[in-house]
Each structure stands twice: as structure tokens, then as C-alpha cells.
Design a protein around this nucleic acid. Structure first.
Lengths: 236, 236
DNA sequence: ATTATGTTTAACCTTACATTAACAATCGGA
DNA sequence: TCCGATTGTTAATGTAAGGTTAAACATAAT
């Protein structure tokens, strides 16, 4: 279902070659953003998070090395691959000095590029879970572990939650005692907002209410036409 | 503290070239062990821990790829650089499939090699500390020795583990009680992530569960669509 | 070559999930 | 108060993921 594709920033000034390469990468399940020069490349880089940058070395206005240096200033970790027409030693060294992860001389075989990309992504696979998002919530007498997707009542046996149940409860918990707009859940979790996803969400609300029944102080209230509210009653 | 030099295993059958390269690397503060063929290379590899392997592809008796595969069975993490005379695409692809970190065509510039080595070492240095050198684990009533690939129950007779069984259990143990993402195991151990490797992994999970059956407190739980979790129940 | 060992592929079955449908209950404005 | 829109709830369905076993395949050891 929602296996997120890896995002690649491709900076290449030759429009023909750039387009072909972009299409080829997209055919291989990468999300590709194509910038036509160094300036544009840096703008695009600042606007989004990428898993990999592929930079042409020789470009007008701003060459690949300069761009790489700017990218490195903002992010020390993104892998960078350089593309270059000439196989000049100085260039290669300069590239590595800037923190390149790999180097390819044009013309190169596209399959080789694919393999290099794969190899680099694999290396990076390790430190993927750096996100220090919030994964644990206390909801009345419940404990929600949103990373392991389970809900515990009074520290007893954990109940497993499905991905959607988990995400929805997490969103509600993030807005505890406050309005969690329908639209928010639909766009964040269902990535679409229509009649059916909306009904689907209602089904999940029903499921969550069932899970939360053991603690009468915890309830999910509806705000007609607006959304839902996870309330935890403090009164005795 | 004393800064320990990085250790490199160089496997190269051409004695002249090999010696020159070795000296050059040593001049640049690496400890180099030079093996003259694949057989010898593997022997030396088993006897010591290396930070990097540089393998010639074409060698008598045992070529670089075969050697790399054997090395990978013992250690999934050491970076490997291949040296090859011909720039054949098939070779390059084969190399990456075995888990190469980089590739160099002879004749190459020694400075370029140095840069590549530096870049690779740097990458490894920044890699997550989670999978640092840790080879012995206590898993409930089991002892896993991941270096020697065996599993002991209650200190009894050790059961031998195959390389894949071993790596998988080790990864699970490293993430004890926590999520071990599917993707992580697939990229780290199988070096590829597709339907079949994924099914293969499931088969290994089944095997591990069988091994771990003797201790009912130890289980491998699945988190649908995410991965697995090795839990060790502490309750009495 | 034959055997032992390790790994992948195939097959079949079970479970987990998400969506959709159907119908009841409720809300809120005309 | 009535009616359409929204929400509550349960069940049915279809699909994807995972569990398990055995056969096929590959490779190393003998």
C-alpha cells in the first residue's frame, strides 16, 4: 500500500539528457525532481527533503561542486552522486573532497547508476529511524505505543492496533481535549478527502471507541461537521 | 588516546602491483595485509578484523567475487572495493550485487583510490552505533554467539546457525523488544528488497521461531507491514 | 560424482486490514 | 417539527501480508 518512494533531486542542465534520466529513474520507482541548473537545484533542495542528490558537474551559473558545498552546509548526510563528462582526476578529487558518495563518468550505463543508487540507499538504511517523533502517549488509564502499534490498559496485556487505528488514535492524542479536525485526519492518514474515506474514518472511530470503553473517563466526542475530540475526564 | 590505524586487507595476485599499492597505502597510514590470491585472502580475513577489503577481481584459484561472497557470509558490514582491469558492465553489476561499496578500473589513479577509501571510512564512522561490534547476546535462556554462529540453550550443546539465520537473529537481538523493520533486514542481509527476498526472510523467521521454541518466554512477533519484534517476557 | 548444507521459490492456508454497503440514530437548520 | 446531511455501528467483501512446509536450486565439502 503506502511504501513511500525514495526522493531524488536531479540537477542536470542538458534538457534532453535530464528528461530521459528522470523518466528512467521514475520508471524504477523513484520520485524525481529535476532542476535545470545549480540555482534552481538549491531552491528545490531547500524546499523539500531528499534521499539522494544527483548533480551534474558542468553547469552554467552554478557548477555541481559549488552546489554540493551549499547542500552540505544545510545537510551533512544526503548522499551525493556526481555526473561528469570528462574523467579528470582533479574533478574526481574535488568531488570527494566535497563529500561525494560516488562518481560517474558520462556516458554511463543506466543500470550501473541504478545499482549505485541502490547500494548507497542501503548504506543509509541503517540510520533511518532518527526521527524523534512522539510515539508514546498516556490516555487515561491507557498507554499507547504508536511505534509498536499497541494499546495497554492498566499495564495489562497489550492490544494490537492496525496502522489506521494507530495513526488515528495518535492524531487524536496529539490534540488531546482539543478538536481534531476531520479534514486533518483525512489528508494526513487517508491522503484523500471524499465521501468514502470519510465513512471509512467513521468506522475507525467506532473501533477506537470500543477499544477505549474499559476506561469510562476516556471518550471520543463528535463535533458535528467539524471533527472529533478525545477527552479525558479528570473529575472524580 | 592512541589513534589506531585502519586495517586494510588487500588481495591482489600481481606481486609487483600488489607490493607497490601496499607500500603506498602504508605510507598513508593504513595497516595493510597483502594476500596473493583468493584462498590466502580468505584465510587472512578469518584471522583478523579489517576495516576495509580491497579485492582484485581477476585472480587464479578464487576470483574476487567468490571471495567477496565468502567474506560477506562472515561479515555483512566490511566495506569492499573491487579492482578490475576491464570495465565490463556485467562485472560491475555483479560486484554491487555482492555488496561492493565501490569499484575501480585499472589503471587508476592512486590518489583517487585514497579519496574513495577516505569517503568510505567516513561513511562507516557516521553510521549508526546500533550495529557496532556486538556479537554476543543473551536471549532469554539462550546465548547467541553471532561471531561463531551458534545458539546455546541453558548452556547446553550449541546449535549451529546458517549465515542468514545468524544475521537475522542478530539484527532482531540488536533491536530487542523493539521494532526491527523488514526493510532493514532486507537491505542489510539480503541486499535487495523485493517480493522474493521478502518471502525468503519469512521462511527464516519461521526457522528462528522453531529454534527459539524451547524458551516459551521468547517470541518473535510480527507487526503487520512493518517488521518483527523479538520480545523477551520478564514476567514470572 | 555424491552428499551435505544453505538458500530460494512455490504452493497453500490463515490472519490482518481497509473499504464498502446497509441501516439506524442524531443533529441542525428551514 | 420535518428533512436532508452527518454520524454510529455492524457485517460482508476483497486484497495483501504473513506462517508454514516442501520441493527446487545452488554451492561447498568429501
Amino acid at each position: 500500500m503506502e511504501e513511500q518512494n525514495k526522493k531524488i533531486l536531479l540537477v542536470e542542465d542538458d534538457p534532453n539528457f535530464g528528461t530521459v534520466l528522470k523518466d528512467y529513474l521514475m520508471m524504477n520507482d523513484y520520485d524525481v525532481v529535476h532542476a535545470k541548473n545549480g540555482m534552481e537545484g538549491f531552491e528545490k533542495f531547500k524546499k523539500d527533503d531528499y534521499d539522494l542528490c544527483i548533480l551534474d558537474v558542468m553547469m552554467p551559473y552554478k557548477d555541481g561542486f559549488t552546489l554540493a558545498k551549499e547542500i552540505r552546509e544545510k545537510n551533512t548526510d544526503v548522499p551525493i552522486i556526481f555526473l561528469t563528462a570528462k574523467a579528470m582526476k582533479e574533478d574526481v578529487l574535488k568531488g570527494y573532497k566535497v563529500g561525494a558518495d560516488d562518481y560517474l563518468n558520462k556516458p554511463f550505463d543506466s543500470e550501473v547508476l541504478l545499482m549505485k543508487i541502490k547500494a548507497i540507499m542501503q548504506r543509509k538504511a541503517t540510520d533511518s529511524v532518527a526521527d524523534s517523533k512522539q510515539f508514546e502517549f498516556k490516555i487515561g488509564r491507557f498507554d499507547l505505543n504508536s511505534k509498536l502499534r499497541f494499546l495497554k490498559f492498566d499495564g495489562g496485556e497489550p492490544t494490537k492496533l492496525s496502522p489506521k487505528e494507530n495513526e488515528l488514535l495518535r492524531l487524536l492524542a496529539l490534540h488531546e481535549n482539543d478538536l481534531m479536525p476531520r479534514e486533518l485526519a483525512l489528508t494526513k492518514i487517508w491522503r484523500d478527502d471524499n465521501y468514502f474515506t470519510s465513512r471509512s474514518m467513521d468506522v475507525y472511530i467506532a473501533k477506537l471507541r470500543k477499544y477505549l470503553k474499559p476506561d469510562p473517563k476516556v471518550e471520543i466526542l463528535n463535533i458535528h461537521g467539524e471533527g472529533f475530540r478525545l477527552v479525558i475526564n479528570k473529575d472524580s
